[in-house]
Design a protein around this nucleic acid. Structure first.
Length: 488
RNA sequence: CGGGGCGUAGCGCAGUCCGGUUAGCGUACCUGCUUUGGGAGCAGGGGGUCGCAGGUUCGAAUCCUGCCGCCCCGACCA
């Protein structure tokens, strides 16, 4: 049992904070609600970013960069959009500071007031669509498939490291299409990429679905989502992909001439995932010993600990293993710090979630072996020195699979059906997780359910079976089940 | 914005009620020796505007006034 991490069973929130801090992922900063992402945490985000970036580029997207600031008037051009974001905007009003007349320090120079206030982007649809107006004239300019990696600011009332910070890093894709069908296809293509990334790389099972009107992105026609389930049985919206219809094209007057010389408004999508994924990664796999990172995203996949400390014989064996691992593209670190004892290092690397630990000591070397410990199960095995790298290569795949299967079983065990409101409440207050239930399709009922149970409508799953039933709250007829859960 | 809590060494805290030597403990850090197969032991050492600004007092971490910041719970949200 870890000496420095609160057990999940004792206080889940504290456990989460302990992991983030003790595994050196991030710290609270001097700025309210904003975090400092530390090198080890950022390395995991970089791995996520690189993989996603590759997947976006493979599907024809290119990167660009748009301004951090958005003129206030832009934000208000799409009515629903501004309503959704108005309450959480950071606003720049001045452009100069001056020394205070009384010598008390520096103040904002009142004469340097901006003509028009600038909003620090909470999302970039408006500034981007304002730009697209100049870029899109003809059907030949379409589709326009652009992504940007950026930081955005949403002045949230309450923040949590990675899960909800006032400033966060993300990618936001903004595409323009000549037909509605093509835009919808793009929206779903991205959702599939998100699903693939979550499941194959993060080893985090997700449910693809569409949001209710109430949960829809401000300014979207449809919002698609991937929903994951954390170890405390609360749901996490892990990524969203929006079909924006012609809303932004109309707001920013973005038209093109079609093949038959007709002027039409452009069809749009936008989609994003953020550093929140790091939070999801933590809460999907980690345990009371610390962080657990799936091999495909680990900042460091293997570590060699000399037992008790480095010497010529151990170094020689370590060098062999390192060379063989590097040959296979596996990242490895040889911890040669002679001041720290092996036990300390074991605990430290477990805390940091390094998937595989290789122990090399005299006892093993006498048999020409090394000891290999896997982070996910804690299991240790002795293997021949010469076969170590090949063993580890297979083991990393096995760990990746095991983490996904374990998380999937956990998630699947927590999808329950409820056919009446008492059962519904009982499940939410008991084992939690997703509850599949009939709903009459109205926002009013959705809000009432939220008020009574704190559960929100997470999504209407995409491959839902149609099934006639009655709304668990109102008894009105319903065509299909939807998923509810308490969520982050 | 409502409720609760907290600001004292890198981190975690005691001391504050009831003012009084040089502000203390654990841990981390540095040096040395002994250790080393699951978070080592001993000895020595360095590190502090006690959140900020006023005030009361011979004397303030401690009392008074004002301010600032952060965390947790709720409403809001990726």
């Amino acid at each position: 049992m870890s000496k420095v991490i609160t057990a999940r069973s004792e206080d889940y929130s504290q456990w989460y904070n302990d992991i983030v801090k003790r595994a050196n992922l991030a710290d609270h900063s001097a700025v309210r609600g904003c975090m400092v992402i530390k090198p080890y945490g950022f390395a995991i985000w970089e791995n996520m970013r690189d993989q996603l970036d590759k997947m976006f580029k493979e599907t024809g997207h290119v990167n660009a960069s748009f301004p951090l600031f958005i003129p206030k008037s832009f934000l208000s051009k799409e009515a629903e959009h501004v309503e959704g974001f108005a309450k959480e905007c950071a606003v720049v009003t001045h452009h100069r500071l001056m020394n205070a007349p009384d010598g008390s320090g520096v103040i904002v120079d009142p004469s340097a007031k901006l003509e028009e206030e600038l909003i620090v982007r909470p999302t970039s649809e408006t500034i981007i669509w304002n730009t697209y107006r100049d870029w899109i004239k003809s059907y030949r300019d379409l589709p326009l498939l652009i992504n940007q990696w950026a930081n955005v600011v949403r002045w949230e009332m309450r923040t949590r490291l990675f899960l909800r910070t006032a400033e966060f890093h993300w990618q936001e894709g903004h595409t323009a299409h000549s037909t509605s069908e093509e835009a919808v296809e793009e929206t779903l293509k991205i959702l599939d990429i998100y699903e693939k990334f979550a499941e194959e790389y993060m080893a985090m099972p997700v449910i693809k679905g569409v949001k209710s009107v109430n949960e829809r992105f401000a300014g979207a026609v449809d919002t698609y989502t991937i929903e994951a389930l954390m170890q405390d049985s609360k749901a996490l919206q892990a990524g969203t992909s929006h079909f924006l219809g012609q809303n932004f094209a109309k707001a920013f007057d973005v038209k093109f001439l079609s093949e038959n010389n007709k002027e039409e408004y452009v069809w749009a999508t936008s989609w994003g995932v953020s550093t929140r994924l790091v939070g999801g990664l933590i809460m999907t796999h980690s345990d009371d010993q610390g962080l657990v990172v799936p091999p495909k995203l680990a900042a460091l996949q293997a570590v060699i600990v000399p037992i008790p400390k480095p010497d010529a014989i151990i170094n020689e064996a370590a060098d062999k293993v390192i060379a063989a691992l590097k040959d296979k593209g596996i990242s490895v670190k040889y911890d040669t710090d002679a001041k720290k004892r092996p036990g300390f290092k074991f605990a430290e690397y477990e805390m940091h979630g390094v998937p595989v630990r290789i122990g090399i000591g005299k006892r093993d070397l006498e048999k020409n072996q090394v000891e290999i410990a896997r982070r996910d199960t804690g299991e240790k095995t002795s293997v021949d020195l010469d076969g170590a790298a090949a063993y580890i290569e297979k083991l990393l795949v096995e760990i990746q699979d095991n983490l996904f299967n374990k998380a999937k079983k956990f998630r699947d065990d927590r999808i329950s059906r409820a056919d009446d409101f008492d059962t519904f409440k009982e499940i939410l207050n008991g084992k939690g997780g997703f509850v599949s239930a009939h709903w009459d399709g109205t926002t009013e009922t959705e809000l009432k359910i939220k008020e009574l149970t704190k559960a929100t409508l997470r999504c209407i799953p995409l491959n839902n079976e149609k099934e006639a039933g009655k709304c668990i709250l109102t008894g009105e007829p319903s065509k299909e089940r939807v998923l509810f859960a308490k969520a982050y």
